[in-house]
Design a protein around this nucleic acid. Structure first.
Length: 292
DNA sequence: CTCGGCCTGCTC
DNA sequence: GAGCAGGCCGAG
C-alpha cells in the first residue's frame, strides 16, 4: 500500500506521538502463521524482539525509501509495510468507523508505551516486515537502494545514467528502487504523466531533454503527495487513523476510461512491468513524450 | 530484466 | 469463481 509519501506521513505523525516514550511491554501475535515473510520473521525473531525491545526508550523515527526506522536507546526497530501494513498509535478500541476495533486478527505486534499509548502494527496481507537491527546493520539492509528523491544525490545526471542504454520500460526502472528509491505503482504512473512520457518507453529511449523534466516530476509529485498526507484508495490510514487527500489529485492512476484533465482523451490502462499502468496516450508519447 | 509467489479481502 | 490490489524477493 504505502509508497514514500504515505510512509513519510506516518513518520511525521509518529515522531510527535511516540518519541521519548518507553516501551513498557511488547506483544507479538502469531495467528495462523503460514510461509509469509512476516510470519517467518515474527516466529524466528519473536523471542529476540520481546527480550530486546522491552524497556527501551524511543529516541526518534526516520525513513529510508519506504522503510521506517524507530531508533531505540539500544538498537533500531525496522518496519516495512508491504501492501497493507498499518501503524496505529492509539489507546485501543475503535480508532475509526471504517476500521475494526484494535487489536484485531490482523494485528501482529503491539508495543505498549509509557503514558498509556499503544503502537499497533497491522497487516492484512502479511507482506510487511518488522525486525530489530543492531546499529550498523542498516547499511546491509539498504544496500542496492537508490538515492532518496529529495537528496542531493538524486540528480538529473544520476537519472540519465540509470536510464541510459536500458531496454526495460522507464516504468519498470522507476519501480526498481535502484535509480531512485520510494516510488511505487501510483507515483510512478503520476510522475510519468506529469513528465509526458509513456510508461512503456524503453529507458534508453527517453529523450535527453525529458530527463530533467522527469527528475522534476518525480520530486514534484512526491512533494505534493506528502503535502496532502498521501493517497487513501482503500486501506491507507496514518497512525492517527486519518486518511490522505492525494487520491483527489491523481491525474491517471485509477482513472482509466475517464478523460485526461489536460486534453480529454480517455486514460488507458494496461499491464506494464507486471503492474496495472495508467497513462494518457495523447499527452504521454513513447520515445520521449509530447513536444512542449 | 520478467515472472511467480507470498497473503487476504473485495469487486466483477 | 476469477481476477485484482499501493511491494518485495527469489528464481529463471
Amino acid at each position: 500500500m504505502p509508497e514514500l509519501p504515505e510512509v513519510e506521513t506516518i513518520r511525521r505523525v509518529l515522531a510527535d506521538k511516540i518519541s521519548g516514550r518507553r516501551i513498557v511491554r511488547i506483544s507479538v501475535c502469531l495467528h495462523r502463521a503460514a510461509a509469509s515473510r512476516l510470519s517467518r520473521t515474527l516466529r524466528s525473531q519473536g523471542a529476540a524482539l520481546r527480550k530486546n525491545v522491552h524497556g527501551r526508550r524511543i529516541m526518534g523515527i526516520r525513513r529510508r525509501a519506504k522503510y521506517l526506522l524507530v531508533d531505540l536507546d539500544e538498537g533500531v526497530l525496522l518496519f516495512h509495510l508491504g501492501m497493507t501494513g498499518q501503524l496505529f498509535a492509539a489507546r485501543g478500541g475503535q480508532v475509526h468507523d471504517r476500521l475494526p476495533s484494535l487489536p484485531d486478527k490482523h494485528t501482529h505486534l503491539i508495543l505498549y508505551l509509557s503514558g498509556g499509548l499503544q503502537l499497533y502494527f497491522r497487516d492484512i496481507r502479511k507482506f510487511g516486515r518488522v525486525c530489530l537491527l543492531a546499529r550498523g546493520q542498516e547499511r546491509r539492509v539498504f544496500q542496492g537502494l537508490g538515492p532518496e528523491p529529495f537528496s542531493k544525490a538524486f540528480t538529473p545526471a544520476v537519472l540519465q545514467q540509470g536510464l541510459k542504454g536500458k531496454k526495460a520500460s522507464v516504468k519498470s526502472l522507476l519501480l526498481g528502487q535502484k535509480i531512485v528509491a520510494g516510488l511505487g505503482n501510483i507515483y510512478a504512473d503520476e510522475a510519468l504523466y506529469r513528465a509526458g512520457i509513456a510508461p512503456q518507453t524503453p529507458g534508453g529511449r527517453v529523450w535527453p531533454e525529458k530527463i530533467t523534466v522527469l527528475h522534476t516530476a518525480v520530486r514534484a509529485v512526491l512533494r505534493q503527495a506528502i503535502r496532502f498526507r498521501g493517497t487513501s484508495l482503500s486501506d491507507y490510514y496514518d497512525p492517527e487513523s486519518r486518511q490522505g487527500q492525494f487520491q483527489d489529485r491523481l491525474r491517471v492512476y485509477g482513472r482509466q476510461g475517464d478523460p485526461c484533465r489536460q486534453c480529454g482523451t480517455s486514460v488507458l490502462k494496461a499491464v506494464v512491468a507486471g503492474r496495472g499502468t495508467h497513462w494518457c496516450p495523447a499527452c504521454q508519447r513513447q520515445h520521449g513524450g509530447k513536444a512542449g
